[in-house]
Design a protein around this nucleic acid. Structure first.
Lengths: 132, 132
DNA sequence: ATAATTTTGGTAATTGAATACACAAATGTA
DNA sequence: TACATTTGTGTATTCAATTACCAAAATTAT
């Protein structure tokens, strides 16, 4: 079994985690998110740290500590979360990063490009408030 | 820079290689394909061997040896080549392989599934004779 | 103050893909 | 027959990305 459309666990934790926090509407900690997403708390911690640095979350240490949205749910879309973790999605060039494609017109570019653009467009429409 | 639609070098070599062989319409060896695809001959060798075992190519050892299509170009599509290398493409289940998605209706399944199906459908229409 | 809790940040371990290598087997050519 | 060439097979190494772990810093509550 293979996959063409791939999303790392990190990106998944980021997006699911942001939705969980948006829904909770209160300070939520690593453990709660790890349990809700069925992933390791270590990985969740690392991803949430990143989201803090990127300005998506505010963190609070100590007992009763955790994370809370820094911006309105309506103003955060899934694409921005995804790209905060993975880096900007590439929408051009050879899908294998060859400088010179051995074929004058690469047979694959069309389909991979097309699907990537569709993905980006969809993700951009998905704001967090749609999942509350 | 990140990617959502990913294709391994192995799968790329397989598809490009099959097109090169189809175009050449004669016995073609590892080195010729490695040079045309700008990849390592070791990797090419490994991939072509797989294609022989999977019934896509016939191999010929010794000087003047190499590989040639086993079936008509018209009867080979890119999807079958891709899946011969990567395994069948998964078109269902949670994109993170969780048995239980933490959300009643996973927000991601729709888009990843949709794109994967589009990819499969497109690749199935692409027979080798279209690239000769 | 002390203890418990939680984030933070650095490092380690794991995984999988890609690449490299060596030698055996087959085949064509001189 | 001897030699050069090419595939076949197995293994080993390298490399990058992902995931896991651990100790330090911060904060709250008792």
């Amino acid at each position: 079994m293979s996959k063409v459309v791939t999303i790392s666990e990190a990106a998944s934790i980021a997006m699911h985690g942001m939705i969980i926090i948006a829904r909770a509407n209160k300070v939520t900690n690593v453990l709660e998110i790890a349990e809700a997403t069925l992933t390791s708390k270590h990985h969740v911690a690392k991803v949430l740290q990143r989201l803090v640095k990127e300005g998506f979350l505010t963190s609070q240490r100590g007992p009763t500590g955790g994370f809370i949205l820094k911006k309105e749910a309506k103003k955060i879309n899934l694409l921005s979360i995804y790209e905060a973790i993975e880096g900007k999605i590439e929408i051009s060039n050879c899908f294998l990063d060859k400088q010179i494609c051995p074929f004058s017109m690469c047979f694959m570019n069309n389909i991979t490009l097309d699907l990537t653009v569709k993905f980006k467009e969809y993700m951009e429409t998905q704001t967090l408030d749609k999942y509350i």
